[in-house]
């Protein structure tokens, strides 16, 4: 998919994005660009609007102003059918996994397939489900319910559900928050493995510095609703700016 495009190809462009809830201004002129194959981590404190930011990228929140361009589509001007087409190419890993707890693992993975793709045969679907589960290393959970799985396993299943449509971009909302350090490191490795296997670009929200170091090509620091700094991890780690330092100390 898309191999013909140049290296400078931007898959997401965010310009002057603002969003407020009532009188509470969450984002106030956020800018960011994501190139194909790149992983950007967005660092920010709790409640700084990180989730709001990535939800604006796939139409789960409507920005007040600014522009959002995803895979060449102006996200603010799409009708429902066009929006669904873009959403099929962008995976979203929710912070709490958001697995459907009334469905088995298999049904969870089949859900986006049945919805976004027409004419998938049961055999194809089964093959794809097993392939994706193998990628996250959990083939034998296929008939289990999400509640029977540990936190780390749920995260892997949620990632598998995100991957089932072979998205070009993945948005990770705090993928390691709430996991123990060892599991968190496994998830970070799985994210890197996913990037290589599926050729994805990603925006990762995190404040787990181990995960940031492991997964980021570039780190964006979200402060006061703006992108305060953007640089590779090592460079930021040497920064003397207090607003950046607070994440490293």
């Amino acid at each position: 998919m898309g191999q013909s495009q140049t290296a400078a190809d931007k898959v997401i462009t965010i310009e002057k994005l603002t969003k407020s809830f009532g009188t509470h201004q969450v984002l106030s002129g956020f800018d960011l660009e994501l190139s194909r194959g790149e992983s950007i981590v967005v660092l920010g404190r709790s409640g700084s609007g990180k989730s709001v930011l990535i939800k604006c990228l796939i139409g789960l929140h409507m920005p007040d102003s600014g522009s959002v361009n995803v895979l060449g589509n102006n996200m603010l001007a799409l009708d429902q059918a066009e929006l669904d087409k873009v959403r099929a190419r962008v995976g979203f890993l929710f912070q709490g996994n958001a697995l459907y707890d009334s469905m088995t693992v298999r049904e969870n993975l089949e859900f986006p397939m049945r919805r976004h793709m027409s004419g998938v045969t049961p055999a194809d679907a089964d093959k794809r489900v097993r392939e994706t589960l193998a990628h996250v290393g959990l083939e034998d959970t296929i008939d289990m319910m999400p509640a029977e799985l540990s936190g780390g396993m749920q995260k892997r299943i949620a990632l598998a559900r995100t991957l089932i449509l072979h998205p070009e971009i993945i948005l990770y909302d705090e993928p390691t928050t709430g996991l123990d350090p060892i599991t968190a490191r496994e998830i970070s490795s799985l994210m890197n493995h996913t990037k290589q296997t599926y050729n994805t670009s990603s925006i990762i929200i995190s404040h787990d510095m181990k995960c940031v170091e492991q997964t980021a090509d570039n780190v964006a620091v979200l402060v006061d609703g703006r992108c305060h700094a953007l640089a590779p991890y090592q460079e930021l780690a040497r920064s003397s700016d207090n607003k950046v330092r607070q994440f490293f100390d």
Binding site: L60, F94, G96, N97, A98, L99, Y100, R115
Partner: peptide
């Protein structure tokens, strides 16, 4: 509250 409704929405379901 567990964002399952959001997850449906991005899975092409109203």
């Amino acid at each position: 509250v567990t964002e399952q409704i959001d997850a449906m929405e991005v899975s092409g379901t109203n």
